[in-house]
Design a protein around this nucleic acid. Structure first.
Lengths: 339, 339
DNA sequence: TTGTAGGCGTTATCAC
DNA sequence: GTGATAACGCCTACAA
């Protein structure tokens, strides 16, 4: 494997018999270059198979050519789908995609510190994570344009869905079917994240119930975390109550799958004796016939990139809040309550 | 949002009353630095909240501090899980993770060309993709240390599983249960990829059948591609044959889910009248009680990083081939054949 | 042990 | 239009 040292702008300049400056102008297609000269340079570039050094360019321009994405738990299908949206949008740009996956608190700190230097990425997208005050301050100090996707903070531009409306939608559907004992199962927001999506969805459910003269009874609420296994256990707890809820709204499809499993293990027919609604509409939801609240996951990633590129192109302005629609998708896990 | 210009090595030097060279030595913990001086420098660094510029360092050292990962179809759970393994391993290193997701052929070309400049990443991991000759040549020319994970090519170091053995394992299990009409459903390797995992698994199945004096009948083989939807259709075709297979080995868990769906739609009880085996043991396989061949997905990513770091640290040598074990996991979708 | 200074490959600001 | 020539921030001989 012979590795020839990569040609530099110098070699091109020499071969084309011009200065480095001129080559650079051609590279960045500056207007003021004689067509003949330009062609000579282009020929030299082709001949040498020259590609500019991204690093050197970065040092000179102060930009890196990379966009960072902070994602929690690549185990969650919804997060992966959002990430795909980001990647798809970025594929049409010259930016590389640097992924910071955060699965532990320590890692979270590390990442924020890494970013301290406005030097790793030109822009940042934070997926499904709301920074706490300390992190906010750090990120802010770097001056790196930052967008939140599925995260809330008034000082950042962000793309969100109306989670309260989603929760309301789910509950309304159940109420219309005649349910009265409705439960909620979501992940437990760390107390410092005041506005986790799951919590907002719960608020939506509670609101819909209240409008119907009912209440979301505390014993019908479980906030055990998203892994299916955990959700299954929490679901089993709900089903063991007397009387048990006749319907459960879940904070995510994954959690809904856990509940379905709990129902199956307890031989409780769905939707005969229990209705279940998920959230997200990940691929498997369709396959399993799960009624759910659909949100545009992939699209949210794309929009995040659009917002970020806009922010990076200088148009500062105050933070934008872009809201994507949610939609009820009725499938086979919801029906009228028993008797 | 006030953005103070980030402090440079110069500022640190000034504050600590030493030269830039000394600061640099402290940064790269060179042995020859007076403890007292070192401490002064460290204090200055802390005080200024200084973080070295990765770009400047890169220009100087010729390294980027990033590892690239080329992944196809982030929609496949197995690929995501491998990626997680890579990310986890990288989290303990100073390297950033740059993800190149490839979901279209054009994008594939773009990525390879981007890499032409040995300038974006210091090392490369290619996940679940076997480069064709042209790509191979390009990658090779860059001189970027490259590792294949779940990909085959004798000129690259790689971490693989014994897919033939996996296929054999699956078929043997079915044979022991008494099955004789065994089918296979996998994704169709583009013809230029001679050794796709799916194909190897099929070869394993065929081998086991042959050892038992049977053959893998062509009409019992479908290679329709991995999406669940496609697999469902292909599965339905198999089930419509007369006589239909009594068992189907699938090239992935996702495909197995498609087959299960086809069976459900056709009201064919599993494992009563049909046994199904998947491949990978992704999370949902456990939840759904799918019998499958487990391969260490997460671990394969970690091992890939280990191999890559070794390769990058110079120890050239010839390509290494590291093989991870596969294992039969019997759950609820396999049983004796009908009658 | 520490300081000095050249170089990494570009871009950008000057003159010409 | 084009050519010098500073930056950009760091690393690393080479001196001292």
């Amino acid at each position: 494997m012979v590795v020839k040292a990569a040609p530099t702008i110098r070699d091109v300049a020499r071969l084309a018999a011009v200065s480095r400056g001129t080559v650079s102008r051609v590279l960045n297609d500056s207007p003021r270059v004689d067509p003949g000269t330009r062609q000579r340079v282009l020929d030299a570039i082709a001949e040498l198979d020259y590609v500019p050094s991204a690093i050197a360019r970065g040092l000179s321009t102060g930009r890196t050519g990379a966009i960072g994405v902070i994602v929690p738990f690549l185990t969650r299908p919804s997060v992966v789908e959002r990430l795909r949206g980001v990647g798809a949008a970025l594929a049409h740009t010259p930016y590389d995609l640097v992924v910071f996956n955060i699965e532990t608190p320590e890692r979270r700190e590390t990442v924020v510190r890494l970013l301290a230097r406005r030097d790793r990425v030109d822009g940042l997208i934070i997926l499904s994570l709301s920074p706490h005050p300390g992190e906010l301050a750090q990120i802010d100090r770097t001056g790196i344009p930052t967008i939140l996707v599925d995260g809330h903070h008034r000082s950042f531009s962000r793309v969100v869905v109306d989670d309260v409306a989603g929760g309301r939608l789910a509950a309304s559907h159940l109420l219309e079917l005649g349910h009265r004992r409705i439960g909620f199962l979501g992940d437990d927001p760390l107390t410092r994240f005041k506005f986790s999506p799951s919590r907002l969805r719960r608020i939506g459910v509670a609101g819909a119930l209240r409008s119907a003269g009912l209440e979301l009874r505390p014993e019908y609420v479980r906030t055990g975390g998203f892994p299916r296994e955990t959700a299954r256990r929490a679901g089993a707890e709900l089903l063991a109550l007397t009387p048990p809820p006749t319907a459960i709204v879940c904070g995510s499809d994954v959690e809904a799958l856990g509940v379905l499993e709990a129902a199956r293990l307890a031989s409780i027919p769905v939707p005969g004796r229990l209705s279940v609604i998920g959230y997200d509409d990940i691929e498997i939801a369709g396959d399993l016939g799960l009624t759910t609240i659909r949100q545009p996951l992939f699209e949210s990633g794309r929009r995040g990139v659009a917002l970020l590129l806009a922010a990076m192109s200088g148009a500062e302005g105050r933070p934008v809040r872009e809201q994507l629609p949610v939609e009820l998708v009725v499938r086979a896990t919801t029906g009228p309550p028993p008797d």
